[in-house]
């Protein structure tokens, strides 16, 4: 049997909103470690990896490892029915082909349950080794979202360059070009407003903006985003989920022919 209970049910709603447009179907793996998922978009250009550690839940029981194949659009439909303050319980019995979501209002005066049919999904799990990155940028997630949105009104791709000067986001399109430079800024009152750039090597990579804008849908999950770049690796855009884990997006670069 698998059962988890999360008092902050809105967190699961936010997770689904962040990934449902990128991935159609995914296997959610439940183990003693926690609730995790790895899935690629249909073109194999982007990958999302989610981890919610068991310690982060108010209740977590997993008698044996299970993998639940779920259509994300359908799971998002169900989670939309949960109130923002609702307590969410997710349950699956061994050997059944469905998962149950239960929503309880904080005052316990409304209790809903939804049963979602599971599906068989051929999961293509990529092995992603730990890597040393040439540059790691930490910045306010809302700022990153704003930059991606602004640049996509000019062009389709973004060049992210990290130098001693800072991190530069550039694009070009039919109407012209755009460059946005963010400098390291640690002298802010609130740590969530800081921009911190760790650079071992200068790096410059090109990415499709439509994927970056899709990743930015995770902005409500974390005040800061971490962007890890290496010249010979996909970029990692990570949103930490407070006390629980993370949602990481991997995006393969574009190269000049």
């Amino acid at each position: 049997m698998f059962e988890l209970r999360l008092e902050q049910g809105s967190l699961l709603k936010k997770v689904m909103e962040a990934i449902k447009d990128l991935v159609n179907d995914a296997n959610f793996d439940c183990s003693a470690t926690g609730f995790s998922m790895q899935a690629m978009d249909s073109s194999h250009v982007a990958l999302v990896a989610l981890l919610l550690r068991s310690e982060g839940f108010e209740h977590y029981r997993c008698d044996r490892n299970i993998s639940m194949g779920i259509n994300l659009a359908n799971m998002a439909k169900i989670l939309k029915c949960a109130g923002n303050d609702d307590i969410v319980t997710v349950k699956a019995d061994d050997g059944t082909d469905s998962v149950t979501f239960m929503f309880e209002s904080p005052t316990q005066d409304k209790i809903s349950d939804f049963e979602l049919k599971l599906m068989d999904i051929d999961s293509e799990h990529l092995g992603i080794p730990e890597a040393e990155y040439d540059a790691i940028v930490r910045m306010p997630s809302a700022e990153f979202a704003r930059i991606c949105k602004d640049l996509s009104s000019i062009g389709d791709t973004v060049v992210i360059s990290v130098t001693k000067e800072g991190v530069k986001f550039s694009t070009r399109g039919d109407i012209g070009t755009a460059n946005i430079v963010c400098r390291q800024n640690t002298s802010v009152d609130k740590p969530e407003e800081a921009t911190i750039i760790e650079m071992k090597e200068m790096v410059s990579l090109t990415f499709a903006l439509r994927y970056m804008n899709s990743f930015a849908k995770a902005t409500p999950l974390a005040s800061q985003v971490t962007i890890s770049l290496s010249s010979d690796l996909p970029v990692v855009v990570e949103y930490k989920i407070a006390e629980m884990g993370y949602i990481r997006f991997y995006l393969a670069p574009k190269i000049e022919e």
Binding site: M40, S43, H44, V45, A46, L47, E124, H125, L126, G127, I128, T157, T206, A208, D232, L233, P234, Y250, A252, P253, K254, I255, E256, E257
Partner: peptide, 14 residues
């Protein structure tokens, strides 16, 4: 012209 790489160019399947 830019070419979009796929993730398999960097990572292998488990």
């Amino acid at each position: 012209h830019e070419t979009q790489l796929r993730l398999e160019a960097f990572y292998s399947f488990n």
